[in-house]
């Protein structure tokens, strides 16, 4: 297939996909939320000054919102809004990169398991079951505690603990794709297993797990927030979860510093909700069986 035709095909597919997606109200709301936060993460830090290192006068510590600090200040006199904008970068970055890792692991394990079958399948699926059954938060906490709490480790830990359900889905899709004639043809002309898995099966599986990917991102962001809150985040790269950790440890709850507590939490809820809305909408568009069932 020539490149030109591929581009045309993708364009056509995308426009028909967008037509259906557009009719899904919650999906559009979710997309709107995500675009807003993406803009905040990308250009926000350039618009708001964040006096991170400078020590302010005592009078600016723990101030409620006013015209100068729209969301008030924290116990070091830093602007909460600026922290929120900066935090969006870290939270989204961790959520998206750890999802990519989780998808890669899930794809490799799911495709190999479904494609090879037999003993390999049995072993890999046993392993998947183990990962499904181990309580995920203790596992993440223990892993981060051992590896050390920094940004890279947090991303790795979330990635390697959340691939199991994806692997399951990919495996079952691989099993059905494996039986299609073009796989038979590829095998007949002597393509290697590796080639078949990554050039034929993966592209066919991907659209099916796209919705799942978005939903996993929602969970990854929640995981990062929780890890950070429990003190297992990177203290130098302050995400929303880390903001909440500092606020909690500084006793913001008891002082009643709601402006320090509510914004980061609301941001997490909105983003997670945004990803969930978009994920569910994609699932309905790409997997119409559900739509028909609900009629």
């Amino acid at each position: 297939m020539s490149d030109n035709r591929t581009v045309l095909l993708i364009k056509k597919k995308f426009s028909s996909f967008w037509k259906t997606f557009r009719q899904n109200k919650t999906g559009l709301i979710g997309l709107g939320i995500l675009v807003l936060f993406a803009l905040m993460a990308i250009i926000g830090p350039y618009l708001i000054s964040y006096n991170a290192a400078s020590v302010e006068e005592i009078s600016t510590i723990l101030n409620p919102p006013d015209s100068e600090h729209w969301l008030g200040t924290d116990d070091l006199g830093k602007d909460v809004l600026a922290g929120l904008v900066r935090g969006s970068r870290i939270s989204l970055l961790v959520g998206i990169t750890s999802t990519i890792i989780s998808m890669l692991i899930g794809a490799v394990i799911g495709i190999s398991s479904g494609y090879y079958g037999g003993t390999i399948d049995a072993i890999l699926m046993r392993l998947t079951d183990v990962f499904l059954v181990i309580p995920w938060l203790p596992l993440m906490l223990v892993l981060t505690a051992i590896l050390g709490a920094n940004l890279l480790n947090v991303i790795l830990v979330i990635g390697i603990t959340s691939w199991a359900s994806t692997a399951r889905i990919i495996r079952s899709q691989t099993l059905s794709i494996k039986e299609r004639p073009f796989i038979e043809r590829a095998r007949a002309i002597g393509s290697s297993n590796f080639h078949i898995m990554f050039s034929h099966i993966l592209p066919n599986v991907f659209p099916l797990i796209f919705a799942n990917t978005i939903l996993v991102t929602a969970i990854a962001i929640l995981s990062e927030t929780t890890l950070s809150f429990l003190g297992m985040g990177d203290p130098t790269r302050v995400s929303w979860g880390m903001m909440l950790h500092f606020a909690f440890e500084a006793g913001a709850t008891i002082i009643g510093a709601w402006w320090w507590i509510i914004p980061p939490g609301l941001a997490v809820v909105s983003v997670v909700l945004g990803f969930t809305f978009v994920g569910n909408a994609l699932d309905e568009v790409l997997n119409p069986r559900l739509r028909r069932r609900e009629r």
Partner: peptide, 13 residues
């Protein structure tokens, strides 16, 4: 979609 700890903090507050 709400982190449990945050919801708890809101409750306390």
């Amino acid at each position: 979609s709400t982190p449990a700890f945050w919801f708890g903090i809101l409750m306390v507050m």
